[in-house]
Write a protein that binds this DNA or RNA. Sequence first.
DNA 1: CGCGACGTTGATTTGCCTCAACGATTGTGG
DNA 2: CCACAATCGTTGAGGCAAATCAACGTCGCG
Lengths: 190, 190
Amino acid sequence: MDKDLLKQNIKKNAPISNAELEQVCKHFYPKSITKRAFLLTQGDICKFEGFVLEGCFRIFTIDKKGNENTLYFAAKDWWLMDIDSFMNQTPSNLNIQALEDSKVLLIKRSDKLALYDAFPSVEKLFRVMSQKALVAWQRRLIRNHCLTAKERYHYFDTTYPDISSKITDKQIASYLGITHEFLSKIKKQS
Amino acid sequence: MDKDLLKQNIKKNAPISNAELEQVCKHFYPKSITKRAFLLTQGDICKFEGFVLEGCFRIFTIDKKGNENTLYFAAKDWWLMDIDSFMNQTPSNLNIQALEDSKVLLIKRSDKLALYDAFPSVEKLFRVMSQKALVAWQRRLIRNHCLTAKERYHYFDTTYPDISSKITDKQIASYLGITHEFLSKIKKQS
DNA sequence: CGCGACGTTGATTTGCCTCAACGATTGTGG
DNA sequence: CCACAATCGTTGAGGCAAATCAACGTCGCG
């Protein structure tokens, strides 16, 4: 069945009865998206949250100077959304683009909000997920401040080899906050 | 009463009945802490969450090279903890230090976990708080990548004038991820 | 008063960027 | 299926933002 991966992911994060799990999952609907297509573009208002079944996505912004800045990648078993736009219902600064043919499960914002009210276990689930994400962002900020570009690259490459192998060096560079020319030079010196 | 600020802060983040609010707040106990004293030091396991009633704190880490790196400041009406150590019960990489004589309300980890189970509204409260914090961290990462040191300094200075006025330039520099010498030069050129 | 942390300033170095050129890969239309 | 375009990766020359190191004045504090 389609939603097994989602169900496992949810159960990993918070205890939930099978009945509630069904109630939650039935609001997710599948969507296929082709390579290079966008799930969200800068200026849109984010009205969904997504869970990746297959493929890989890049969540990035383009600043005033025209530079691309990648917030994160989302491969199989990852969640994605623009939480800023989703929460505040303001125009998004982010683009969510498929890096290869991909499949996601989406839940509409209104359905998600209804689930919060219907099931305390859903509150817990997203509370736990958000707190884990917070930890990851704090650690990343520390790495950005304490490590050199070369060290950050090696951290990324060894920590996420599955993602690293799917994406271009240019995209890695925009995640690390450096130019792709400089990344090329880093890779050369070992 | 002592806990008014805490109660207002909670009500700002999530709807909660007065009865439940009392149940939640009664687990918070006050603590006074003198300038330069530590609420948590690197290596400790974080067993509390705190809410600042008065004063100001700095949450920072010291890396292998001996550089101080400030994750954030917490003034009146802010929450503080090492969420990484709190969640995983692993030794903390962070120091939480009072920058002036301060007062906090603390809740023990075990009490907080019990409150999650007792009240769905507490799950919602911390779910919402965590998601707001997530948005703030994402925005900060984007600023770090897209703005120059000078722009980041001015953003901090104008966005948090109350904090900015209380702390030393050295501390601001460690928050911005630059040296205090360079911050001095930035400030000079306007 | 005197010590230690802070802030400033200058000289020098370095990590990373910019621009430009060119081969290698990948995508696309005829 | 090939030809051409577009994007990507590499390399080099030069430049700039920010770090490092060092000296010195200042302030708060014991």
